[in-house]
């Protein structure tokens, strides 16, 4: 099952404007792991995710997804293996109806129409959105859009899910539903977020980024107890690990 493996070694990336976003990042994520990627704004989370999804190519260092190194030639294989869920679902949902949007990836994979329809129905059923199939995406609520954007990726049967701020702009109930949904997935999950409670709920492992480098990489509960480390990374303990605002107790 090595196709679920994600390995990054000495990854560096500098944008054309001179901003050095990644300054030598290394980690290895194995099959079925759920990993939270946290850090202050501008530490390179999105740049790192773009590499993992095959949207950017390494300038220095290597990225390996499963059996393949990330190179221009392996891009189609990498993009098939990794499903990326964008921060803003409006960027991801561009087809006239939800059904068309979920079918977009499988159709591009050259699957026969019967198989595409099966995958669309399965993916929508999995996120509890079968009833939205004929609706235009812009008519949906934030939570529904998020569920559909996940379905668009699931329909391509990826091995690895990469998510950029999946809980942003969701109301509390939609956020809770998203967490429950993500918990049911057996994929390898990499979640970049500022939602520390979501990381605590879903990810047994966390990587903290700081100025384009890995500041810490370890079990979520351990890292989230280390206040000095969190402070250095411009982070805070998840609300659930903070004291009660009334009595001060945990």
């Amino acid at each position: 099952m090595s196709h679920h493996l994600v390995e990054v070694k000495g990854l560096k990336y500098t944008y054309p404007d001179g901003n050095q976003a990644l300054r030598g990042i290394s980690f290895r994520i194995t099959h079925g792991e759920a990993v939270g990627l946290v850090g202050a704004n501008g530490v390179g989370k999105s740049t790192l995710l773009a590499h993992l999804a095959g949207a950017l190519l390494p300038q220095e260092g290597t990225v390996r997804i499963g059996d393949y190194p990330l190179t221009p030639k392996t891009l189609p294989l990498i993009r098939k293996a990794v499903g990326m869920i964008f921060q803003d679902p409006d960027d991801q949902l561009f087809m006239p109806t939800v059904g068309d949007d979920v079918a977009f990836g499988p159709l591009n994979m050259g699957l026969p129409v019967d198989e595409v329809e099966k995958r669309v129905d399965e993916a929508l059923a999995l996120v509890g959105a079968s009833h939205l199939k004929a609706r235009p995406p812009y008519k949906l609520s934030g939570g529904e859009k998020r569920a559909i954007s996940i379905a668009t990726v699931l329909a391509m049967s990826p091995d690895i899910l990469v998510m950029d701020e999946p809980s942003s702009a969701l109301d509390p109930l939609s956020r809770r539903r998203l967490i429950q949904l993500l918990r049911t997935f057996k994929h390898t999950k990499i979640i970049a977020t500022h939602d520390m409670d979501l990381v605590l709920d879903l990810c047994e492992r966390t990587i903290i980024l700081y100025q384009g480098e890995v500041l810490a990489d370890g079990p979520t509960r351990e890292l989230f107890q280390d206040e000095a480390l969190l402070k250095k990374g411009h982070l805070e303990k998840p609300l659930r690990l903070q004291g009660c605002p009334v009595c001060g107790g945990l």
Partner: peptide, 19 residues
């Protein structure tokens, strides 16, 4: 840019296929 990226990541090759 972001929309085009989302399309490329889902295998867009210049041809829109409708179901």
């Amino acid at each position: 840019d972001r929309v085009y990226l989302a399309m490329r990541l889902r295998g867009f090759d210049g041809e829109i296929r409708l179901l």
